[in-house]
Amino acid sequence: MIRLPGLMGVLSGTVDAPDIDDTTSFWRWDFAWEVLPEMLRSFFQVTLVVTVVGTLIAAVLGLIIAILIRVLPKPLAWLVTWSANFIRMTPIVVQLLVVFYGFVWMEPMAIALLVYGVHYSTYMSEVYRAGIDAVPTGQWEATTALSLSAVRTWQRVIIPQALRSTVPSLGNYAISMFKDTPFLIAISVMEMVTTALEIGGFTYRYIETITIAGVIFLVASYGTAVLVNRLERRLAYAY
């Protein structure tokens, strides 16, 4: 092993040594209060960063994949399609492990961004593909009639129309990615749930940390889902 799971230096300072009597009590508000800053820190520094940056990478890469499949000659397009299928149909946990042990010089956080970005780009490319397919044939014919270049056609006509209907689905995949971030425990990146277990390892208390993690997930993903829903309705009206 080259890298050991990094213990958070702050832990020893912020969390008291376990009190034997108290390990049996059910829920301790003082403990919950004590670990909350640490949980939120991991949420903002890791979970949120991976979700936001991962989504951006996936959104851009997904579009590139979708366009490549449309413009490349058949054998190459087939290769891209099945590579994407391969990545989409295999576990992100194993993909994380492959990169972690295969590219040992990479920072775990960089691995996280890369793997989440690439994995979800294969989902998002499907969304874009559907969006591109939904652009009426008449639009393509019109660009031919106007002798627009291929680049111009994609840039000014097809992509703007294809993108619009894809926004809600992309939002939903961002939420899925968010809920998949705890899988980062496989490469010991200290996201929220890993942090919860780490604290549990020191204090023998799991109920507060894991419950807090669950509540944060529930609130954040439900809140985002409501936002996406509203966006979807607004886009529907905009037509």
Partner: peptide, 18 residues
């Protein structure tokens, strides 16, 4: 909404530890 909203790993850990 509860099981969709909280992550799989959180549910695993909760059932296992809590």
């Amino acid at each position: 909404e509860f099981f969709r909203g909280t992550s799989l790993l959180v549910q695993l850990m909760w059932l296992f530890y809590v």
